[in-house]
Simulated scan of single mutants.
Amino acid sequence: MNILEKHLSDNCDARLPGLLNYGVAEAYKYLHKLINNVPALQHDEMRKTYGYLRNALVDIALRNVLSNSKIEYKLSSMSIDARKNSYTYSMLKVKGGIIIPVKTGSISSFPKKANYRNAKRRLNYQFNLFESEKELDEKYDNQDDPFLMLTYGGKNYNLDFVSIGLPNASENTWIDSIEITNTPVMVTNQEETMIHDNLDLEFTPIAKKMLGEDNNGQKSI
């Protein structure tokens, strides 16, 4: 068992990998549903909005999936600085880890450099690649929860992979990562319907705000 797999097994809810994968997958399904049902989104020039829509959907879907699971969590929207309208990112706190969702180009690639992620990586100094597994286990017992990245992506806005990665504290590399694509999770039909309904309820006003007005000053959706 590798470092990250052992950490998740020993310190996190056993359902967490499956629920994270399910949340991201549901977000992508809803994105394609939205594109198919909103004619304005089918214009080539509107493709530039897909990434923003996807990121917002991932945040909403993860919150709803974890809420239904009864796993204790906190999902916060963090600003990279104090300026008004500055870039925000989502940070998920669960038992055993601090997780930031981020889209990457491939299953093995490391996310683009970002200062807010670099700062969080300092939590991972406890994981030293030159120490034995026994030394890591002993040292970890008295450390804070590590910083993890939930990475996902694929070509043409399709979902090809979902992974959890443990980033190196000082370099743009992975200490360890595991793919969680298609990790099974038990979700009842009632829970699935509730998640879809909540996505509709929460995301409609967000989508309208993102799409804004068309050239005539009328709302496009």
Rank of each mutant, 00 (worst) to 15 (best):
L4Q: 02
E5M: 09
H7V: 01
N11Q: 12
N11W: 08
A14T: 09
L16M: 05
G18L: 03
L20F: 05
Y22H: 11
Y22R: 10
A25M: 10
Y30N: 06
Y30G: 00
H32M: 05
P39Q: 09
Q42W: 08
Q42P: 08
H43C: 10
E45V: 14
E45R: 14
E45W: 13
M46E: 10
R47V: 10
Y50R: 06
L53N: 07
R54K: 12
L57T: 03
V58I: 14
R63F: 08
S69D: 02
S69G: 02
K74S: 13
I80F: 08
A82T: 12
N85T: 09
Y87D: 15
T88P: 03
Y89R: 02
M91H: 07
K95W: 01
I100Q: 10
V102G: 00
T104G: 05
G105P: 04
G105S: 13
S108I: 11
S108P: 02
P111I: 02
A114S: 10
R117I: 11
R121L: 01
L123S: 09
N124Y: 04
Y125Q: 13
Y125E: 14
Y125S: 11
F127D: 04
N128G: 01
L129W: 02
F130C: 05
E131A: 05
E131G: 00
E133C: 04
E135K: 10
K139C: 07
Y140K: 09
D141G: 09
Q143F: 10
G153W: 04
L159E: 04
F161N: 04
V162N: 00
V162A: 00
G165K: 01
G165L: 00
P167F: 01
E171C: 01
I175M: 02
I178S: 05
I180E: 00
T181D: 03
P184N: 07
V185W: 03
M186S: 15
N189S: 08
E191S: 11
E191N: 11
D200S: 11
E202W: 07
E202T: 07
E202C: 05
A207I: 09
K208M: 13
K208I: 13
L211F: 08
N215I: 15
G217H: 05
G217F: 06
Q218A: 14
